[in-house]
Design a protein around this nucleic acid. Structure first.
Length: 255
DNA sequence: AATGGCCCCAACCGCCGTTTC
DNA sequence: AGAAACGGCGGTTGGGGCCAT
């Protein structure tokens, strides 16, 4: 068993020798966007191979999920978002991906970094009075509200969905991640965030691909296979269900 | 102008659960 | 059924930028 593991590790090392690491170049980004648009957000290892990028599938996935995905919201956190992070962290701890699901357009990595740089020290120092929300509540006020929120939130989770977050299957999780992508657009409008130059560039790349005759066939093949499972309908209903819950939750905290 | 310290964040790592073959 | 591949997660690292001295 151990020998097998070592063998695998050796093979991985050999593979990694030829792989690029470190910051991504613009050409790599462009290529990755092109291939994700063509092949979809899945099978990252084969996507990495087919694209000719000298990157691991994992690295490609990370770059897309955390940086290139056009549904990501750029720019500083709004005060509302900041408070949601603070509140949900109080509720759930370091469950970054879980928290990210409540903040469309934000990634777990972003939230994790944000927490570490903005909140951790203050919280560790019990310096709650330095945290003031958009209504002028101090940390003390918020701390009391978290406790109330904990009750509201867990009740909403179990009553509305009828299952515990911790026992969700991966199918549920996948549906949720699809929903995030869809929801990002709605939320972006809600928060009044405009497209950044970087987003514009990505849309340019995508539109270049869509108009390319040689790629049209590939897109056609892909869309016919993905339409089989009607994912858009499912994703939509899940998202709106979650939005209602989210707004109820926010109201209960900030009113 | 040089330098040291700190902050921020993109990227990586290791592990583990899930899916595919 | 079991092994391999894949994908997701939380923790960590390293480099670039900023600022004070």
């Amino acid at each position: 068993m151990i020998a097998k593991k070592n063998k695998k590790r050796k093979m991985d090392c050999k593979k990694e020798e030829t792989l690029r690491r470190g910051p991504w170049l613009e050409e790599e980004d462009e290529r990755l966007v092109k291939f994700v648009t063509l092949l979809g957000e899945r099978r990252w290892d084969s996507l990495a191979r087919v694209s000719g990028l000298k990157r691991s599938g994992k690295s490609c996935r990370l770059r897309w999920m955390n940086y290139l995905n056009p549904s990501l919201k750029r720019g500083p956190m709004s005060q509302e978002e900041e408070m949601v992070i603070f509140q949900l962290h109080a509720l759930w701890g370091n469950k970054w991906s879980k928290i990210a699901r409540r903040l469309p357009g934000r990634t777990d990595n972003e939230i994790k970094n944000y927490w570490r740089t903005h909140f951790r020290k203050k919280v560790e120092a019990q310096n709650y009075d330095k945290i003031i929300d958009w209504r002028g509540n101090t940390g003390e006020d918020l701390w009391r509200k978290y406790k109330e929120a904990e009750i509201t939130w867990t009740r909403t989770e179990t009553q509305e969905h009828g299952f515990d977050e911790t026992v969700k299957t991966s199918k549920h999780r996948n549906m949720e991640s699809g929903k995030e992508t869809n929801g990002g657009i709605c939320e972006r409008e809600r928060f009044g965030v405009m497209s950044s130059p970087y987003e514009n560039r990505i849309s340019d790349w995508i539109s270049e691909i869509s108009t390319d005759q040689s790629d049209a066939k590939l897109l056609e093949d892909h869309s016919s296979s993905s339409s089989e499972n009607n994912i858009n309908i499912n994703v939509g209903s899940w998202w709106f269900q979650e939005t209602r819950d989210f707004e109820e939750f926010s109201c209960s905290l900030w009113s």
